[in-house]
Write a protein that binds this DNA or RNA. Structure first.
Length: 224
DNA sequence: ACGGGTGAACGTCTTACGTCA
DNA sequence: TTTGACGTAAGACGTTCACCC
């Protein structure tokens, strides 16, 4: 059965995560549901080398208070982690054959490889979210500062009040009386009525505010 | 001894796909 | 041929808990 991955989140897209479609499940891998009867902490048959590194002994079969066998914590060896990371860099999801092969190579069960990839994807996403959160905070701070500056500017201009306020015409480089200007409500551009023909952006520092957008942020994140 | 962090493992939900009536 | 119900597989997500510092 071919199950395409669900649409990637925007975060994944911005950082360029690639996920390959799963191949038809021909390997008899039981997935998350079918493995409940297997002891996840047992070394695969024929396995067991110095790389197999768990802090709990495999022969510990004591019963837990709720009847089932106690959950043991597997610690992956450095080599196992390195190989998994390397594989994750190439692909964030594994098809059943890749999973099987990797599990064989690592002397782990396919289920363990699968779980590792699930957790790794989750950690990756969390990290990405944290980065984006950090970026948005900085962006907010910068906008706040810009807003403060602009408000100060407005106050100063109001305080000046030396005759009618003027702006500089980009065409004639002559000062224009503000009374000749009007704001187009649709495109939010300043137009002149008589003295200066054609729509103009007002020649003021305040136009810089419109240049920042969240898209800059995703681009910035991509470059990291 | 104790608490917090880490990460492997788990349970549940959602989604996509195949099959069949 | 189309459609809706149903089963299955796989990933996302939240949580649990063993282990370490």
């Amino acid at each position: 059965m071919a199950v395409l991955p669900r649409s990637s989140s925007s975060l994944e897209l911005t950082i360029g995560f690639s996920s390959s479609p799963s191949f038809p499940n021909s390997s008899g891998d039981q997935g998350a549901c079918g493995m409940k009867d297997l002891d996840i902490n047992q070394v695969p048959s024929g396995g067991g080398e110095e790389d197999w590194n768990t802090t709990a002994s495999m022969e510990d079969e004591e019963e837990s208070s709720n009847g089932g066998p106690p959950r043991k914590k597997l610690r992956l060896s450095k080599e196992q982690s390195r190989l998994l990371e390397e594989s994750f860099r190439q692909n964030h999801t594994l098809n059943p054959k890749q999973k099987e092969a990797l599990a064989m190579q690592l002397k782990l069960r396919p289920r363990q490889v699968e779980v590792w990839f699930q957790n790794r994807r989750a950690r990756s996403k969390l990290k990405q979210t944290e980065m984006e959160c950090e970026y948005l905070k900085r962006w907010f701070g910068s906008l706040t500062e810009q807003n403060r500056r602009l408000q100060r500017e407005v106050e100063e201009l109001r305080a000046m009040k030396v005759g009618p306020p003027t702006v500089i015409s980009p065409h004639s480089c002559e000062p224009l009386p503000a009374s000749t200007l009007s704001m187009c409500p649709r495109c939010e551009r300043v137009t002149t009525t008589a003295a200066d023909k054609g729509p103009n952006k007002i020649n003021a520092a305040s136009s810089t505010a419109a240049t920042m957008s969240p898209k800059v942020g995703t681009a910035a994140l991509q470059s990291r």
